[in-house]
Nucleic acid binder design. Structure first.
Lengths: 188, 188
DNA sequence: ACCTGAACACCGTTCAAGT
DNA sequence: ACCTGAACACCGTTCAAGT
């Protein structure tokens, strides 16, 4: 049984996917959830608070790399799968991606917590890949930030059409992530 | 003598800087430019077209690395200065940065041209740095895309607070750019 | 060619009132 | 505690009209 609050978040997410942030009107959110156009104010402070809940739910969504439990898969491969999953999610749901990494005037705790645990999982994967000498040394948090920045930037440039779509410079975001991981291999 | 069109763009840029995209209302733009609230429609198709003009002017703004004309400065240093200038611009004008790389439903030619020449300058710098063996080989357009993606992503994560602000993982976007350039150095 | 004032539809938000 | 309907202020856009 979905609570009204959940239905409001689902409706907002659907409108966001279909028409971007501008299409998320409280009137339409209410209509999709089967309530009046200002019932949302009983569950969220305002529209921004509703969108923050949508973003938090996206960040908290478990992104489990399929190979994580398989001991025959190397740390670097798990790291690579994590970043490819991140890229695939962003390309598949560009509006959610833009929303999640938009500017939040009031940083909700829910959102900060979700972001923190996602970052911790990435740092752990980097540490594993360094332990098996597949990724060069250095502060794992710093290396994780570099990898995340590259994946994030590649997706954002691709979504806004600032990555060359054709010619020999053509590269998908996944390709750029792989390029970086190659350059991160330690010197033999 | 500034034309009305220029004054409208300037007013929109100022409002964008002060209060984000939501603060750019055609009524306030007109008031700042000294015209009525719908005079902009004689110069731009609609609000999105006005914002596209703002974005195009930002992209076309010359970003001249100070050292570009100095023959004693290496190609890699020019490349590094270009990316640091990009990061500094984005941090200084976050709203313009977000707007410029937002989703453009109708890709204006003006915007596409400006983006193209900016990319060409970056590729040329990469080529120079490769020629002096300061950056590893490979398709220069692809390497340029990797560098741009990292700088762009680092800035976007920093602006949205998704880069750890404290602790040993702390890194400014400029630091991540430098980290990448270090990893890009060719094996001796 | 460029601009103005009135008007329309739409949206976020508030408020008084209902169960 | 949760919801509704009316109302308000604001905004993008259009239109008829002015110079």
């Amino acid at each position: 049984v979905a609570t009204t609050r959940d239905r409001l978040i689902e409706a907002a997410t659907r409108l966001l996917d279909e028409g971007g942030p501008a299409a998320v009107t409280l009137r339409e959110v209410g209509r999709l959830a089967g309530v009046s156009h200002n019932a949302p104010y009983k569950h969220f402070a305002d529209k921004e608070d509703l969108l923050a809940a949508v973003a938090a739910r996206e960040l908290a969504r478990p992104r489990r790399p399929r190979a994580a439990a398989d001991p025959s898969v190397s740390g670097a491969q798990i790291l690579r799968e994590m970043m490819h999953a991140y890229v695939a999610w962003a390309i598949r749901h560009p509006a959610r991606f833009k929303l999640t990494f938009g500017a939040w005037s009031a940083g909700s705790d829910e959102l900060a917590d979700a972001a923190g645990s996602a970052r911790a999982a990435l740092v752990a994967a980097v540490r594993d890949a360094q332990a098996s000498r597949e990724v060069a040394g250095g502060d794992p948090e710093r290396v994780a930030a570099l990898i995340l920045a590259t994946a994030h930037g590649a997706v954002d440039l691709a979504l806004s059409g600032h990555l060359s779509e054709t010619g020999k410079g053509h590269a998908r975001p996944q390709d750029l992530v792989d390029d970086l991981l190659t350059h991160l291999r330690p010197a033999p």
